[in-house]
Design a protein around this nucleic acid. Sequence first.
DNA 1: TAGATTGTTAATCGATTAACAATC
DNA 2: TAGATTGTTAATCGATTAACAATC
Lengths: 209, 209
Amino acid sequence: MKKQRISDAVIHRLPRYYRHLDDLHNKGTVRISSSLLGEKMGITASQIRQDLSCFGEFGQQGYGYNVAELRAEIGHILGVENGHRIIVIGAGHLGHALLQNFDFAKVGFQLDTAFDISPELIGTQIRGVTIRSMEELDEYVASYRPDVAVLTVPQNEAQPLAARLIELGIRGFWNFTNVELSTEVPGVFFEDVHFADTLLTLSYRISRS
Amino acid sequence: MKKQRISDAVIHRLPRYYRHLDDLHNKGTVRISSSLLGEKMGITASQIRQDLSCFGEFGQQGYGYNVAELRAEIGHILGVENGHRIIVIGAGHLGHALLQNFDFAKVGFQLDTAFDISPELIGTQIRGVTIRSMEELDEYVASYRPDVAVLTVPQNEAQPLAARLIELGIRGFWNFTNVELSTEVPGVFFEDVHFADTLLTLSYRISRS
DNA sequence: TAGATTGTTAATCGATTAACAATC
DNA sequence: TAGATTGTTAATCGATTAACAATC
């Protein structure tokens, strides 16, 4: 096992490994070789072994990998056992869709609560999660200290809201607004989900085929 | 201008360029140099010039790039003027959120119609888009020939549905189900939006900071 | 044991960055 | 003109692939 900085390319493949291993696991597959997994994922066996070697030795010569074990190891690397706590800010259509459909627990997140400004929504529940007033936000975050905030608010509110939350100790943002967030504060991370970008990539591809 | 295969890395940066240029354009910025744009985007000026050189010469020595012009050029490369036609399949929470909030026109797509199985939804409209019965799907696609389908249906329906749509001539899939789609048919493209992957990346980062 | 498959080192390939002549 | 900044070529860096000894 080499001990070095993990490249972004590797980090971005980890969730994919996790997803595919989870898939195999659910199908009852007990063992898998790097070549078979590579075939399934459309990457080389070499790359898989190289990637995994950044984190340890999880396989066995002549056998391959135990699916359940490797899945758990990668889950561990990704931090799914850390019980990170998450809140949703903005319960409009998209926020509502996430609250209703997205399985936060499956990726190891504990969904605590949601916030919105709309009086009709405040006090209601979606799948057991209470929607609170934005006025309670500061106090809530200060006392319950969630790790991550999902931002499904209007564009122009995103950056100031993020700044406010960073000050209150939030360390991760799952950002669905179409702005790229940033901060000077170290140890704070953003994952910007730009829907339009992927659709434009698709547009590019079908435009020249 | 070098004429060669465009790498995925470049293709994935194009929408970002487009977004940032659009942003500058909306702010009234007339010209921008590669170094200033790079600063804004967090990449090197060299990379921007190298990327753009794959498609042509859009700048001027000593001046930089005209924002409106470069924005239009990249839009053209991405195919936003092609008026691609798109349909949404599945008008549950996520499909509904997209219909309600996502600006398809802004990325050059013409949103034709949506489909769902729910009798309560069929016949209703969301932002002027009619929701039709899934039973009309084949006939509709066969006669109106949309280019792209947005898949916001249950996981297990995704792959067979995609196969069916490919046969009917759909060439692009904006896939929000958590399965990776594939086909043998050439000229068909998939953009899988895996929400969980980005959240897991975030989990990884906050777990080790 | 023989076959399979790992983890790792070395080789290759490609992408990013630097440098600079050309020129607006 | 002088300064700025491009497009492109060359240099560097890093990521992917290939190869193989180790070993289950």
